[in-house]
Design a protein around this nucleic acid. Structure first.
Lengths: 239, 239
DNA sequence: ACCGCATTTTGCGCTGGCGCAACGTTTCGG
DNA sequence: CCGAAACGTTGCGCCAGCGCAAAATGCGGT
């Protein structure tokens, strides 16, 4: 997207990159070697688009490092974040659902590294590699579950509860222990948070300010630390 | 659920029931026979629960006739409709996503008829029947797309637009031409509509009343007829 | 024909949270 | 080190749509 620089296939990708990741964990060293030899590795700057909604799904990806937001843009230009994907998961797997174009846009939240393969190899992977299909469908199932939860939240909860829930989920997925609490492990702006919870950055900011005064959270620019998760849980359940 | 009446395997299920349905369309007569012989058929009264959220996913289903709403219930007892499923589609296919319990409740909107098979046969179907996996993942992909759309709608649109959208979608999926317009082919209350659009039955009722005065729709109890779809499309896109 | 229940309609007041606006603060490139 | 851009905070007014309440209407059962 950014530059059409030739995807540099790094000198030698080590098998250890994949061996512990669910979709590949049941495979033999030799198989992983084959898979890696077919892969391209690439680094993405923060905010880079890995792929865009509607594009033909030419490749599928394994996020090795970083975080990715999956975003949809409405006709009127508003953004809605559908999902956050942490390192170690596949993305752009439209093919698994019989689609031939990407249903959403993938934007890196941090500097990220991803492997990718041409979509045409998908069927081979499914057929040849034991556990690959099962494991991907599991993550897919998990994502569907998350989407479902979001629908229910959007439909029934107040903004305050939704924001609290979103923070808790982010912390659970990507929390990093620091002194005084748990911090969300990637840069996230009020704007991002608002796109994740279907509100405005103003309201998100007000809520965080309020919580900060109560000692529930602390936040610097682009960084949020949860100090009192339990209190947030209470908030997230409407008192 | 309702009664534990023995699932009556009807004397003889005809192959024609399945031959034209996507997941089975590429199969031979003989294979379909085998599939049917393993199936149980059952009739459900309107409002019956085919399965409930959280239950172990013991069977998967093919809806032969009727309409089913897929519903989630929140901790506070509110209902949210996640999806509508028309005849000819599979449901309860938790297994396809590696889940072993149903993620939502399936409630019939009309009298319905469904075939079902023990979940343990799922893998056999996928392995033995060509096109079965592909086709199911396609419907799954379609449903994921719908869920995505709903998230975006809930996040960005006003109630009026959401209700308009919901009506249009229902009409597209299940519309039946009648004189003066297109009618939604199953009974749907204001309450149902509100659960589908995350609003209250009051607001839904007010909107429909308003539109009726403008001649966009006509509605008797549990029946909604769209008279001017084009005008609704305009509404659904915010003017 | 009548009763009771489910569904629908409508009015009215209240409020969560959005829109707008202005201003403070941190980061980064040059 | 400076200026601009990105990010965050806060005050204020307004309104879509919810909650509550009450009544009307159609429907099925006995």
């Amino acid at each position: 997207m950014d530059q059409d620089a030739p995807r540099k296939t790094l000198p030698r990708l080590d098998e250890s990159l994949l061996t512990h990741l669910p979709p590949f964990s049941r495979l033999e060293r030799r198989q992983i070697r084959t898979i890696l030899d077919q892969a391209s590795a690439r680094r993405y700057a923060p905010g880079a688009h890995i792929f865009d909604e509607g594009e033909p799904a030419e490749r599928f990806f394994m996020l090795l490092d970083g975080y990715v937001r999956v975003v949809r843009v409405t006709a009127t230009g508003e953004q809605v974040t559908a999902l956050h994907i942490p390192a170690g998961q596949l993305l752009g797997i439209a093919r698994a659902l019989g689609r031939d174009s990407y249903p959403a846009t993938a934007v890196t939240a941090t500097e990220s590294i991803a492997l990718s393969w041409p979509t045409r190899l998908w069927d081979t992977f499914v057929a040849d590699y034991d556990g690959f299909a099962t494991e991907t469908y599991k993550t897919l199932g998990h994502r569907v579950g998350e989407m479902n939860t979001r629908i229910v939240e959007l439909a029934t909860q107040q903004v305050e509860q939704r924001v609290a829930n979103a923070l808790l989920r982010l912390v659970n997925q990507t929390g990093r222990k620091v002194d005084g609490g748990i911090e969300i492990d990637f840069p996230i702006t009020r704007q991002d948070l608002s796109e994740l919870t279907a509100t405005t950055l103003h309201t998100a900011s007000r809520l965080l300010s309020g919580w900060e005064k109560l000692g529930l959270v602390e936040s610097k620019r682009k960084r949020i630390k949860i100090c009192d998760p339990h209190a947030l849980v209470l908030l997230s359940q409407g008192r």
